[in-house]
Every structure is written in C-alpha cells, then in structure tokens.
Design a binder for these strands. Structure first.
Lengths: 155, 155
DNA sequence: GTCTATGCAAATAATTTGCAGTAAT
DNA sequence: ATTACTGCAAATTATTTGCATAGAC
C-alpha cells in the first residue's frame, strides 16, 4: 500500500490553493481533497462521492461537483476526459502522460524520465499500444487575437 | 472553400468499412458519413444532426448516434473527447494530433511532418500552448493477461 | 454581521434503450 | 422471407442550478 499523505500536507496545499482565489477553507473541501490525495487513481465524481461520504455521511453530490471544480480552478487537481463517460480527476500534478485502456476504460499515469523527458522509457511492461496522440491545450489564433486586441492591456 | 469530397469516394469508403462487419448500406449512413467528410472540423452529434437533417428532414437523433457509433466501429471516423462537453467526431484518418482551445473549446488538427513525424514543425502560427500530454490508447497489463490467459485461443 | 458554501431537490444536457414499423439482402 | 435499421418516445446518466440554511472570516 502506498504511504498515506499526511493531513498537514493536505491542509497546507489546500490553504495555498484557496488563498490565491480568496475562497474559504471548509471541512468538505479538506475532506474531498484529502480523499483524492490518498489514492493515486482517476476517480469520477461519483466515485469521489462514495469514498468521501463513507467518512462524512451528510456530504452531498452537489458539493462534490462544486468542490472538484474549485480544486481544479485552484490548480490542485486536474480533470481527465479521455472517453465518453464521466469526467475523472487526477491529483498527480507531476508531469506525466496518460494511458487509456480500451478494454476496462481504466486510466493509468505514464511517468516521464526526469532526465530525458521520454515517456517510453518508463512505460511499464504489459501495456500494448494501439494508438497514441499528442494533446495540446492552450489558446487558438482567433482567441489570441481577441485577447491581445480588445481586452487585456488597459495602459 | 475546401474541395468537395466526391460522393463516389464516400460510397466506396463506406462500403469498404461496412463490408468488414457485415453491416448494411443505408441512405442515412451514407448521408451522415458524407456530411462528416464534407467539412474538416470536429462536430458533436448534435451538430452532425443539424447539418444532416437540413437535407434529410426525417432523420432522427437516435439514428445519428447509432450511425456515429457504427462509423467508429468500422474505423471510418474517430471519437474526440478532450473536454467535459459532448463527444465530437473526426473524419481525418491521417496521423495527426489535436489542439484544444481553452477559450472557445475549439478542437484543431495538428498535422505532422510526413518526413520527421514532428508535430511542432507544422504547428500553425498563433497557437499558444499552456500544457501538452501524450495520450496512449491500448490494453493495460491486467486486461492483456485476461485476454491471453482465459479466452482467446480455443486450440 | 456579512457573505460564501452546503445540502436538498428540481432542472438540464447528453446519450441510450425499447419497440413497432420500414428497408436491405 | 428474414433480419437489420430507423424513428419516435421514454428512460438513464452526468451534471448544473435555485434556494433556504449553516458555517467561515
């Protein structure tokens, strides 16, 4: 079993994240964030809800959705959307790639070699690849034009 | 405007795809596949429905969903799921990568250099990248074990 | 005390399913 | 003739929203 992430670490990270946006520290946010950090997988909102509710029975689904969005906005977790099903969440903020299993729909982190940055070097044995692509995220030319033109600089 | 894909090409490809699985050639499948090939973007099922219904008013949403699934199974199109919204579809079967715009949620094809395979070489100007990752698809070790162990060979 | 966050329930969005009629082989 | 496909409507899944109450600062 992976070693437990200490609650002090959870609180510190959460406080840092919330501070940036002026949001409040609540028991639910702490508990949900802690739930995510305790297991290095890619749970859906439903799965987070079930795990977290086990120790906080009054917790509601809406709060889970709200909190997950909040944590994403704070940069503490990332959304993972590689298939048609529910959005999943990833608390691994290290640079890494993803492997999606076409059979069980599981999502696996593929770490990179810290020296070379090569993911293949660390591709664990047993995975067979049928397809791969690079996914870039950012801003497209049209939206960049809008941002640079009209809005941003007020000097 | 990009040049129109001839209907003969559409029919030929569709027949090839359907033949592999024993599925039938229908007016709806032809029309939907043609609709996808005529525009190189990444429409959702809803968008495909609207475009296709314009020329085939009796078309139903369920048929669009069914047909899109069929075309994916035949290998004629691919699903694109990079955000929380509706699944989109891609009729570009050339090797390429994707760029997702965080502002407008648009999806753009990023072609690769046919010589080197480098996507950056062809990254069009104006795109600014905030994050990128490699997405692998295939079969995970556990599912590979199941397939090789129990089921497949009946000799 | 003020304002944000939570919990509940209702609403919406995206997709799937059941089934009777229609069309392809 | 047989079996798959379509269209419609209802059902389900995933997520969001409105609002009264509770809690953080």
């Amino acid at each position: 079993m992976a070693k437990k992430v200490p609650i002090d670490f959870v609180d510190e990270r959460l406080n840092q994240g919330l501070a940036k946006t002026g949001l409040r520290f609540t028991a639910q946010r702490r508990h949900i964030y802690n739930t995510l950090l305790q297991k290095r997988d890619h749970p859906s909102a439903e799965e987070v809800f079930m795990r977290a509710k086990a120790e906080m029975p009054e917790l509601s689904m809406a709060t889970v959705y709200n909190t997950l969005d909040t944590l994403v906005k704070c940069g503490l977790i990332r959304q993972v959307t590689h298939d048609r099903g529910p959005t999943r969440y990833c608390s691994n903020l290290q640079k890494h790639h993803h492997f999606y299993c076409n059979e069980c729909n599981g999502v696996f982190d593929i770490d990179v070699d810290p020296e070379t940055g090569e993911p293949e070097f660390h591709m664990p044995p047993g995975f067979t690849i049928s397809h791969w692509e690079i996914l870039f995220r950012g801003v497209c030319p049209e939206c960049n034009a809008k941002k640079n033109g009209a809005g941003s600089s007020r000097s």
